Simulated assay, not measured.
Amino acid sequence: MRKISAAMFLALNFSMATQAAQLVDLVQVAPVIPYATGAESAAPAVNHDCHWNTQVVQALIKESKGRVQLAAQDLGAFEGRKLILFASSSAEAGTASETAPKWLAVTGQLLDKNTLIGDFKLRQEITKGSLQDSKILKEMSGDLGDGMAQWLEEPMRGVSVAPAMPALNKDSVDDEVLKNCPWNTFIPKYLAENTRGQVNIGARDIHNLNERKLLLTVVESRIAGGGVYSGGKWIDLTGQLIENGNDIGSFEASRHTIKGWSGCGAAKNLSEEIGEDIAKWLKKPSMNAKLGDAS
């Protein structure tokens, strides 16, 4: 009888344990994503023959490399790990433009034994073409499926942010920047585009939202062009993560630079650095954290 070495025995056990873990983590999903309640009227604006809300699921299964599978039963009755998805889309038909983009979106909740593990909202926009174009729909559906697969690698609770941050002191921001640059929207936009669906842009008056939200406030800033000749530029802000009316996380964030020939360019660079700091913090939020140059 052939003997198995200790190393081979350990390798076999590790392989079996890995396979078992993968089985535990399998996620069930419905074959078609239904339109969310109230969003059904937008469905005719999209090429119905393309079945984009089925293509998204197919892309998700492909990109998840076997971790997601089609449910063999009604998801409502299934008590294991499952992904509940809802679709929405632009209500207006016609050609997209910079001022009137067309979009597809999917919201999802990951449940395990009916306990919420994480939630997200992913959105794909186009500024050219139409949602009647099957090639465009296929590409957008693939991107949404890929985004969901990436989110599933590290699922987290979703967070809403306001589209623009209030600033307590705008005196040190160049008038030209205030007039022509949406500098206080850069951080929310960065978070929405770089957190795999965890952060989504909510209503302007986010204080009235009951969902999980991140309140961002610019405390001090100096934004100007001129590169090194205009001296230092910075953005200092605070953040409060609120759930059910309770603070569950808070931070002070700051970034400084002497770069940036244009004020808007300097603001964008600073915002991207702070946005990256906040995105990392959101993976494990804490109270009274110091981010970036505030630490």
Rank of each mutant, 00 (worst) to 15 (best):
L110K: 03
M287W: 05
P163F: 00
M165N: 04
E63Q: 11
Q109L: 04
S88W: 01
W261I: 10
C50W: 11
G263K: 00
I235F: 02
P34A: 05
D174S: 06
P44G: 14
A93G: 09
N288C: 09
G225A: 13
V68F: 03
F186P: 06
L131F: 06
E193K: 02
K283I: 09
S295A: 15
A36I: 02
S230F: 00
A253T: 04
I61Y: 07
V56K: 11
I242V: 14
A203Q: 08
A164Y: 03
L241K: 02
L104N: 13
A39H: 04
G80H: 06
G76H: 08
A224Q: 06
S130N: 12
S88Q: 00
R2S: 06
A30R: 12
A105K: 02
L131V: 01
L85P: 08
A30Q: 15
T217P: 00
A17N: 12
G147L: 04
T195F: 03
G76D: 11
G80F: 01
D49Y: 12
V57R: 04
M140S: 05
I187W: 00
W183E: 08
Y190E: 04
T54C: 06
K280E: 13
V177C: 02
E153N: 15
A192Q: 03
S250Y: 08
D133L: 12
Q19D: 03
A77P: 09
K268G: 06
Q150R: 15
V56Q: 09
S160I: 08
A45G: 05
K268Q: 15
A266R: 09
K213I: 05
Q150C: 10
G118C: 11
G265V: 14
A164L: 10
L291N: 13
I274V: 11
G232V: 13
T107L: 03
P44T: 15
S15G: 03
A43P: 03
L215Y: 02
L12Y: 05
D171L: 10
S160N: 00
I4P: 00
T37S: 10
R157N: 14
K128L: 02
A42R: 01
A39W: 07
I242G: 05
A289P: 01
C50D: 13
K283E: 12
E220C: 03
N180E: 14
Q19R: 13
P34W: 04
D277V: 12
A72Q: 11
W183M: 05
F86N: 07
N47G: 08
S90M: 00
D143L: 09
P44V: 10
V106L: 08
R222F: 09
D119C: 14
A279G: 10
E153L: 12
A11D: 07
V27I: 15
K102Y: 05
K283F: 01
G232E: 14
E273Y: 13
K102I: 06
N114V: 07
G129K: 01
A6N: 14
A71I: 08
Q240E: 15
L215M: 14
R255A: 06
E125Q: 03
L137V: 13
G275I: 06
E98R: 09
Q150W: 07
W261H: 07
L178Q: 00
Y190I: 03
D146M: 12
G202L: 04
R2K: 03
F120T: 14
Q150A: 09
G275Q: 01
H51L: 07
A167M: 07
N13A: 15
A6F: 15
